[in-house]
């Protein structure tokens, strides 16, 4: 994550940039699979639905949802452009990195149109009704982009090699979307406070409940909480509940050893800080009633930009445990 300054209409807003990126794996099933397998073999297949020939093929009739018998038929490779649009500025998701056309292409023998791209040098070379044929990719995986692009003419441009030995049953899809999300004033203030070694909250002016500094609202009274409502919080409290997490490995996971997360009821004031890290406490020593105090980052740790604010976590104070049985009612 990194912050950047984005100029808005009326003000400069601080935004945080985050990218959602994940390699999805999709199973293709009994109809898309054979279609993709055929692509790898530099062929197009369609599926019959009554007298209609549907390409790209579906397992069902798109009008009636009737399950279609697996009655495949070869179509193309050439086809006719039914309509098209011109992409002047391709994105990283597009198959071509220069201006190109999207087109609905009715492959010869099919009654429906396949969406794909047409590679021509300029928009002047595009026209509705034009004839196009596929230019196959050298490395074919059984994917819709095994057709690199369609090109004007009747003849497919075929290449040797790159054919998977087995029927294609899966495809990958790499999504990557970057968001620039404005950071709220309350979040900035929360970070500033922790940078100063202060633990602060926001007090609802109506019900006087106290919320985390970055919350922004009292959901009970639906009032907005701002700087005017800031209150200092004592930096000590008691653990009211906890869990010890054995990290599951997934893309982006940063943890390898079991770690604890605790709920801390702050002294003297009615607020619970949820899912807080504990510092230097063996996981087997974590317990309800344990007295803890805030640990701030050292100067060296402050340099670590990855840490949100400078609150490292909580550490036992060494005081006797709080044995009040009602503590367990204060998870929030």
């Amino acid at each position: 994550m990194r912050t950047s300054h984005e100029r808005g209409i009326a003000e400069v807003t601080i935004t945080v940039e985050s990218t959602i990126k994940f390699p999805y794996k999709r199973s293709l099933g009994p109809v898309i699979g054979p279609f993709m397998t055929a692509l790898a073999e530099q062929r197009f297949i369609a599926i019959r639905s009554g007298s209609r020939v549907i390409c790209p093929p579906l397992e069902w009739d798109p009008e009636t949802a009737a399950e279609l018998p697996r009655d495949f038929v070869d179509v193309g490779p050439a086809g006719t452009v039914c309509t098209w649009s011109w992409v002047s500025r391709p994105t990283e998701q597009h198959p071509l990195d220069r201006p190109f056309a999207f087109a609905l292409i009715k492959l010869d023998g099919a009654d429906t149109a396949l969406t794909h791209v047409v590679d021509v040098e300029s928009i002047d070379q595009m026209s509705t009704g034009m004839r196009v044929a596929p230019r196959w990719r050298a490395e074919r995986l059984g994917h819709i982009t095994d057709v690199e692009a369609f090109v004007p003419g009747e003849e497919a441009i075929t290449v040797n090699g790159g054919v998977p030995g087995e029927p294609v049953t899966m495809m990958s899809y790499d999504a990557s979307i970057t968001y620039k999300i404005p950071v709220s004033d309350n979040t900035i203030k929360a970070h500033e406070a922790t940078a100063q070694g202060r633990l602060v909250g926001l007090k609802c002016p109506v019900c006087e409940r106290i919320y985390a500094r970055d919350r922004g609202f009292c959901p009970i009274d639906t009032v907005e909480l701002t700087d005017d409502h800031e209150v200092e919080l004592p930096q000590r409290g008691v653990v009211t509940s906890y869990t010890i997490i054995t990290p599951v490995q997934y893309p982006g996971q940063t943890e390898t050893e079991p770690f604890s997360r605790v709920m801390v009821l702050i002294d003297e004031i009615d607020v619970v800080m949820m899912y807080q890290p504990l510092v230097d406490v063996p996981v087997e020593d974590v317990r309800i009633g344990m007295r803890v105090a805030v640990v701030w980052a050292s100067e060296a740790e402050k340099a670590d930009a990855g840490r949100p604010g400078n609150l490292v976590g909580w550490m036992p104070t060494g005081e006797p445990d709080n044995t009040d049985p009602s503590l367990a009612n204060r998870i929030m």
């Binding site: 959602i20 869990t243 893309p251 982006g252």
Partner: peptide, 12 residues
């Protein structure tokens, strides 16, 4: 778990 953590580490 990836999605729950919005792609960040230390997802609970």
């Amino acid at each position: 778990q990836f999605a729950l953590g919005s792609g960040q580490g230390a997802s609970m």
